[in-house]
Design a protein around this nucleic acid. Structure first.
Lengths: 338, 338
DNA sequence: ATGAAAGCGCTAACAC
DNA sequence: GTGTTAGCGCTTTCAT
């Protein structure tokens, strides 16, 4: 039998209210006697009393729960995000429900329903973006929402972003400075805002250098190892072999590297590569990879701060966008052609 | 204003109960008229009614929530576990609360309190094991518990395990067959059951081959990149350089590989290495790594099955242990000395 | 310095 | 075929 406030009240011969006040550390302001308070706290300890959170939530209309919806928890980008978010929220007394969509829109929809049904206090969402109907369901309910790692035009909300375009331009310009002209863009899902902005950065850099881009140098697809692998091998075996790859995320980059290796080529001697996201393996390859690092810890903390300020302070503060700079980490995966 | 059963009841001019019965698809067994049912369902849809789970949980004493406590969510071993577990539980209508301990016992304790307070229906726990007091708190409350990836002697519970000892013996014997005699064990936390069993496997194999183990060939420590790195570099720079490393997990193995590279040595020409856990990077290195793979998907599904059968069927079934075999994946990180 | 009572939103036993 | 009622465990207003 799990003890409730009543259990304790009965044994100490006081009312539920008194027990509640004591256990919530409000007995001083109610002027409850030291003696009563002590009896209650020690009995609670003895019985291993733990407040029923479902009851508290129902009464208070506050769950201290945040839903975190990510697209692929096995991608280190997201697992690190979860780690930082979980840690920050834990220290504030919040608990997180984790939802993995695997880039599946129905899943995203289902998870959002579950989270709304559970009356979470807020949601951190890294949306698929194939359709944004799901997002409106959250907005309609006025549930605080932090959109993570995506920018949807004409959708007012709180955003946590990095400057994708500038970050990409820094990397691609670096390739151009090293004399590269045949630079391939291996991209992610075409409807994804990151992909679009990274692609825009790529085009800008090449355009500024007056380098034209043949159609077959642009390989949109999806954020997978497989896509990176296939795009890389296909191009390396074509009759117009590029000198450099730009990979739109860590999964694609890893796949491309594997493709390069399987074609019997060396990075950076035979082919150069740069890409988005820093990841552990990047430093483990024979030639460590030059990458665009996203400040994940800061992004996670900003997401939490943004959400909590909306939850705890007022919901009438204006929408905010946290746009952080990326960091270009130069290692050794590009060759200077000059 | 969020709609409740009462909102709908008022508008359709029926009672809460009727609405509840309809929305729970029980109207046939209660003989509620088609017409009423239709009116209710369509109004619910129109109002975007979503059941308040806190209220349902309180009433039903069932939360459809499972707590998952892992030691490091950024380790692909755990992030994949979470992915599989989440997916399996989602399809059964359960939601997961994720708890990351970072090998910190206080965290583990705090998280367990939170989960118990939230009256989760079950817990999947990958415990730190430095102390097992925390685990008893769960057992005392009779909350279904699946202990994942650890075996605690004298603690009756449901376990999800792999055969660590046999898996290790297979790998170490393979090294011995290839003529290795100077094999170093780079281990994890000394109080960890996996580490102890893997170490036992290592000792057994060497003992069967009548090879003695000098003390400085055994490097217990913790499951970190750093420990792997330091152990490897220290030994490679000593005056008794081994011919092979056994790494007790993926983090240690990666660290050791980096250490080997930083010492200017080649795998497998200069030094051989095998280790526990398969991971993506293992196939990306110049010489792909020979590893002991754990059947993570099956482990995750078994954990879910075990937990759900205890939750949904009866709590009086005997404790069970799911002990799966590992798979020895031979790649190219060992040299045949014969 | 403490208690009584109401109510959060839901389900189900019992009533008619 | 549907309503009434009680109660899950908690917090808080109001009363004394």
């Amino acid at each position: 039998m799990i003890p409730t406030l009543q259990t304790i009240a009965d044994r100490v011969n006081v009312s539920r209210s008194t027990v509640s006040r004591v256990l919530n550390n409000k007995w001083k302001m109610y002027g409850i006697s030291q003696a009563t308070a002590d009896k209650i706290t020690s009995l609670a300890k003895e019985l291993h009393y733990l407040k029923n959170e479902a009851a508290r939530s129902l009464r208070e209309k506050k769950t201290f729960t945040i839903g975190v919806i990510v697209r692929d928890i096995t991608n280190p980008f997201y697992s690190q995000l979860v780690k930082f978010v979980e840690s920050a929220l834990y220290s504030k007394g919040y608990t997180i429900i984790i939802c993995n969509t695997g880039y599946d829109l129905d899943r995203e929809n289902g998870h959002i329903n579950v989270l709304l049904s559970r009356r979470v206090d807020g949601i951190i969402l890294s949306p698929i973006q194939k359709s944004i109907e799901n997002i409106f369901k959250i907005k309609d309910r006025n549930v605080p929402l932090a959109l993570f790692d995506c920018k949807i035009d004409d959708l007012e909300a709180d955003y946590i972003l990095v400057d994708n375009e500038a970050g990409t331009m820094e990397a691609v310009s670096y390739l151009i400075d090293q004399g590269h002209k045949k630079i391939v863009y291996i991209g992610g899902n075409p409807y994804d805002s990151n992909n679009r902005l990274r692609y825009a950065g790529y085009r800008n850099s090449l355009s500024l250098a007056s380098i034209s881009i043949p159609d077959h140098y642009v390989k949109h697809g999806n954020y997978s190892f497989k896509h990176g692998y296939e795009a890389a091998t296909q191009l390396l075996r074509s009759n117009d072999v590029p000198t450099a790859f730009f990979a739109a995320n860590n999964r694609i980059m890893l796949g491309a590297c594997k493709g390069i290796m399987d074609c019997g080529l060396q990075i950076p001697d035979d082919i150069s590569i740069v890409g988005f996201d820093d990841f552990e393996t990047a430093t483990m390859l024979p030639s460590p990879l030059t990458v665009i690092r996203q400040p994940l810890r800061e992004m996670a903390l900003n997401a939490v701060d943004l959400l909590l300020s909306r939850i705890e302070k007022a919901n009438n503060i204006p929408y905010m966008t946290s746009m952080l700079k990326t960091e270009f980490v130069i290692r050794n995966s590009t060759k200077n052609l000059n």
